[in-house]
Design a protein around this nucleic acid. Sequence first.
DNA 1: CTAGGGTTAG
Length: 688
Amino acid sequence: MENMKLLISVSPQTSLRLLKIISQKRSLSLGKSIHAQLIISNLFNIIESNYLIDIYSKCGHISAARQVFDFMPNRNLVSVSSLMAGYFHNGYPSEVLSAYRIMGFGQSCSCPNEFIFATVLASCSDLQALEEGQQCHAYVLKSGLIFHSYIKNVLLHMYLTCSSMEDALQVFRSMPGLDIISFNSMVNGLLDHGRMSDALYLLTRMVAEISQWDHITYVAVLGLCADSRDLLLSRQVHCQTSKRGIEANLFVASAIVDAYGKCADSNAALSSFRGFSSRNVVSWTSIMSACTQNLSFEETLKLFVEMLADGVQPTEFTYAVVLSACAALAALSNGHLLNAHALKLGYNAHLTVGSALINMYSKSGSVEDALKIFMGLTWKDIISWNCMINGFSHNGLGREALVIFHRMLTEGVAPTYVTFIGVLLACSHLGLVDEGFYYINHFMRNLGIVPGVEHHTCIVGLLCRAGLLNQANVYMTTTDSNWDIVSWRTLLSACLVHRKFLLGRRVADYVLHLHPDDAGTYISLSNMYAKENRWDKVVKIRRLMREKCIKKEPGVSWIQVRDKVHVFASGDNQHPLIENIHKKIAELIDEIKAIGYAPKTASFLHDVEEEYKEGYLNYHSEKLAVVFGLMSMPSEAPIHVIKNLRMCDDCHIAIKLFSKVTKRKIVVRDVNRFHCFEGGVCSCDDYW
DNA sequence: CTAGGGTTAG
């Protein structure tokens, strides 16, 4: 710094050399001091001012750049294009176009050159301003500027982002002298439009026409690997990049992690991520996304903590990924924490973060908080609406879901495939049979949305809920859809709830014909027999399951208390406080027996599985977790428990009564829906 | 002195 003052006062050539270095280094503080020196010595000319515009723009101080520009007594084309580039790179493409309009080229100013058009066309791309872009196209054709390679490529990019693939292809085909940048743009454009085979064809052409691929070509190829879920190809490309030393590039590194994640190999994603020498937010976010997509939710949370410890600031993408991991885990307290964190950094206003928060809160049993977030959004898109509608529906709040749906229609937002899953689910909760059929048969059809198996399954649920089980069965057998095991289970469990055992057994036989080893169906069947006290049949089914080595997925429930997640499996005694928990359960069972609870047992049989024996039900995982929660949470705090299977009958009754005798709010998220127990009743109205 | 293509999301 001391030397700099001397240099400026000594020679103007040296000051230009200094300015060049400062521009390359993007040093705001040095730029400011040399600016001050120039003012003091009153020595600056057009070139020095242009440098200052460039430096301020590159350092994100666009208003300072504008000030320098405005105070210049004389300007040239470089002054204009530097300022335009500044506006463009700082995210103000519309300023570039208005600057162009008021510039008065050809009159007071000389004609625009290739530098000006490069930035103007790039701004058209960002603004999706096809018409302006076409006007530029005409000008660069007439003026001959089209022969500059920069102009050619930026024009191609404009058509790729603003117009049809056909227009872009026409520009691409008519362009002489294609270079690596034109090819890269075209490949990426094709991939963006989902035209994978065309992209692949172009890549084979690139092998012949481009001597050396660069890192951006590899990013495109890795995008192709990810889109086509081709693990082998991903490995091959990864190897090539590391051989050529390109994997050190952070764009390439992130693309490698993403490709492995999309190809369902989270181990490869993790080990390649660990092997990279440098990291940034994007590569961190990519690895977290890879883990979340492959159901390693805890890993995502651990990585997030590690990233923060590394001093890397999250972005809206990061929050979206981590929040969706929280949603999957129903990790409400982590989600709360992330909400506060995002709020502090100002990311709460972002659409993706907002939707992720709505999703997280509604999947963690706190719809009230989800609604608060939703109402606080200044900008809503279709995904925010869908998250809120589905959030309400999944929590059994059909009325509220429909209110949001109608508000969405009034605001002129067009519903989508996902919207109607929530809407039909809401109809099912409310018993609105006619409305449900109206939505699926007319409303969706008028919008050109073809109903999928999710919608049809909602209709089955709707009919079942209304007690129209035969109609539900007929609907399933006569409607052409990709009926899956989920849809059949909807009908089966309805048969159980409504005690339609004849139909239930017939359906179960049919399902076992389609899915011979489905444990859930065997269990439903045996539950139906158990409800009729036909224990001989129960024993037979259990024996059959043993012979076929079909195992029931063990019931697991978990609850978060402070910073720790406590996991309970049915009948296991792993928890350090298990003695106290059993004692507490026994006390509570005695209490609720006094108000009418009658436990179900089949103690008179020895050949029945453990779970039917006396007292065994008391060791069901959800009871263990709920009672542990009652013991360890402050007395006003609601108890949030998550279970991997559907809740069992007995636990449902017992927990309802627990909520009454303890005056606590208890929320259990099972694999299907939420049960919100309060004052002895459940939000599911005993139907699940 | 100024300009081009690229990674992560609900």
